[in-house]
Structure formats: C-alpha cells, structure tokens
Design a binder for these strands. Structure first.
Lengths: 210, 210
DNA sequence: CCTATGCTCAAACGATCGTTTGACACATGT
DNA sequence: ACATGTGTCAAACGATCGTTTGAGCATAGG
C-alpha cells in the first residue's frame, strides 16, 4: 500500500528523475551544452532511458517546459481570478509575478526552471518560441485585460509594449542574471522576495506612467 | 598605399571575418550550439584558422565580446560625459540606452551582438560573468553616480536594484525576445527606435518612483 | 505454467565535436 | 640566393555527441 505511484504511470522514479536532472543541467549549461549522458548520469538512470521515455532530446526539452509551465500558468490565472473587482494594479502585478517567485523557491536546486525559461527566450528562431506562445498566449491576454481595466487611459499597443518590458525585467531578475548578487548573509528565498518587491514597485510605476 | 591594413595585424580579412561569422552564429545557436566548422564555413576560411588566430573556441568567444563591448562602453561614457549638469534623468537614461540601440542597428545581420550578450547573461556560473563585470563594472558605477545625482531621495541600494531591472529590460527588449514581434510593415530600425522610446519612458517612471 | 508487457541495461552505431599536425605558398630582410 | 616568419590548407587525432539495438529482468493475465 502507498507505494508512492501515480495513477497512470507505472514507474514513479526514472521518468521524473530525468526531468529533474535535465531541468537543472539545461539551466546550468544550456540545451546544447548539456548532454544526455550528463543528464542520465545525474539522474542515475541508464542512457537509453531518455529515448525510451521521451523519444528524443528535443522532446525531453519540451517536457521540461510543459511540466512547469502548466502549473505556472494555472497558478497565475488562479491568482488573477481570486482578485476582487477593486483590486489595485499592484495586486494584478503580484498575481503575475508571485507564482514565478514561488516556482523559484520550491525547487531543490533553487529556481532552475526560471533560468531554463530565460534560455528559451534566447533560442530565438526555432519551434520553442511557438511552443511557448501556444502555452502562454492566453495567460498574457487575460492579464492584459486586467491591466487595461486598471489603466483606462492607456491604449492597447502601449500596454502590450509595457507588459513585454515587465516580462523581460521579471525573467532577468528571477533568473538572477543581474549584477546584483545575492549577499551571502541572506537566504536565496529572502533575496528573491526582495527582488520581487523591487520589481513590483518598479513595474507598477512604469505601467502607470502617463 | 591605403591597403586597409591595421598597424599591428598584417592580415585584415580572415581574423575579422571569423569574428563576424562567430558573432552571428553565437547569437543564433548559442556558444555550445554553434560549431567552429559552422563558423569557419560561414566566414569562408579554413577550419584551423580559428585556433591559429585565437588559440581556442573559448578565446574566440571572449574576443567577440571584447570587440563590441569596448566600443559600447566608450560610447556610453562619451554620451554621459557630453551631458550638461542640468541634464534630466531621461537624458542620462538615453546616454545609457541609445548606444545599445545604435549597436543593434549597425550590424549587417542586425543586432546580433545584443543577442550574444543576452546569451552571456544566461551562462550563469562561469568565467564569462567575471569577464563582463571587469569590462563593465566602472561603466555601471559612473552611470549610477549620474542617476543618483538626479534622484537625491533614493538610497544607494535601492538605486542599484532599479538599475539592475533597467538593464534586464533593456537587454530583453533589444534582443527582440519579447512577445511583441516586429510588424512586417515597419523596418527593424523603426522597431528598435520604438522599443527604445517605450523603454526609456518606462524606465524613467520606474526609477523616479517614490 | 506460459506468454505478454514494461522497463533497464551494456554496448555499439555513425556523426560531429575542438584541436593538432605537417606540408605548402608567399612575402620580407640580409 | 637563402633563410625566416606568417598565413592557409587538407587531413587526421581522440573525444563526445544523440540514437539504436538486442538481450535480460521483473511483474501481470490467462
């Protein structure tokens, strides 16, 4: 009893361990830079397991995205739906930003996926961008509506430009790319919380600007 | 006479053609994703030329950065030095942002280096970050002073956080990563000019925020 | 008991990677 | 004329890449 299996998949360990290891290594070395041998070695599974469970390296990359992006998207939409009509612009911004922060916190390695996401933005021309916009477009649209309702004087095109800027700053800040390095005397979680507060404040001012 | 040679280097063509090709391919496929064979093929030089002129692939990557970063830095500092004492916050921001825009414009391929720079931010742990901060730290410091003079009520730590956010948004926007794709009826240059204006406006509001 | 199915394993496939080698062409200085 | 130094070239080095193979294990269904 309670053998820790999920309902559909017979094996709990191998398939997900590959995903975890891949996420961390992709964040660290990039998609081309991390080899399947490194992934399977870190996951402590056989090399052939990747192609057996996922078919190819490209499919594995897609799965790394799908797993996190699905929950990130639904958390964002849930947080948005939980807001009352009198919610402020900051509240909407927080519904957008905080799930990304939580995602950065929960991982053992610490925010690997956000860095993977930033890598994906850099992969400029290929199918990954299309994959992202498919799994992401409706979220952006719903948030754009919520923002628009709180910024009645801002026209549509201008709003989308600003949201794009917010997304860029968010990705950059969450992925810890900046010159500001985490001070050793504060925890990673505290650092991310600080980044979130600064980002939220900055973005609100930028969005509201006349 | 005027054989287009530089003073020290006897050959003008091969060495720089490698740099151009490498810059474009690194932007497209990343550092690990672009092979030296692809680079030398695009540059129409022999494969061994890379190791002859640069020693290794890593050194080549460094050179790609050094070439552009030197001019970008000096252009930014020149633009900053050209400002009068009564220059506004927007003026300082423009001195910071516009050289990056110009860099995006001048290239034949169109802004390849900014995308390479964004790739470098994603290469999180290695020596490249140190290399960047060495060639970049003093620029940031000088601009921070200029900003601080125009934002007397803002404390130092808060300012650096905000500048970090600005840099992230700038990189992201200039590298064309966003969901906003360039409309086919406007030129790349116009698109970048628009991005600059939006970014400048947004960043000024964010920096000024109480 | 036998057979099917799901999964793991070591081993190997051909392709491609960064790097090195040695021969060769060409210019320069004595 | 000869020696020297600089750059280019085809070819090859061993290492590592993504992927495939076929044997071997376990468990479940009949």
């Amino acid at each position: 009893m309670a053998d820790s299996r999920r309902a559909t998949t017979p094996s709990p360990s191998t398939k997900e361990r590959i995903l975890d290891a891949a996420e961390e290594l992709f964040a660290q070395r990039g998609f081309a830079g991390a080899s399947l041998r490194q992934v399977t070695s870190k996951a402590e599974v056989n090399l052939a397991a990747v192609n057996y469970h996922y078919g190819s390296k490209d499919k594995l990359i897609e799965e790394v995205f799908r797993r996190r992006l699905d929950t990130l998207n639904s958390q964002r939409l849930d947080a948005l739906a939980a807001l009352h009509d009198d919610a402020t612009l900051e509240d909407v911004l927080e519904a957008y930003i905080r799930p990304a922060l939580e995602l950065s916190r929960e991982q053992h390695g610490g925010g690997a996926f956000i860095r993977v996401l930033a890598r994906a933005y850099a992969e400029h021309d290929n199918q990954l961008r299309q994959f992202l916009s498919e799994h992401y477009g409706n979220v952006l649209k719903q948030f754009a509506q919520a923002f628009a309702a709180r910024l009645p004087t801002l026209d549509k095109a201008e709003l989308y430009w600003r949201l794009d800027i917010v997304t860029g700053a968010l990705t950059y800040a969450m992925a810890n790319f900046g010159i500001i390095q985490r001070r050793p005397d504060i925890s990673e979680a505290q650092h991310l919380e600080q980044a979130t507060q600064h980002l939220l404040h900055f973005a609100a001012a930028g969005l509201r600007s006349a």
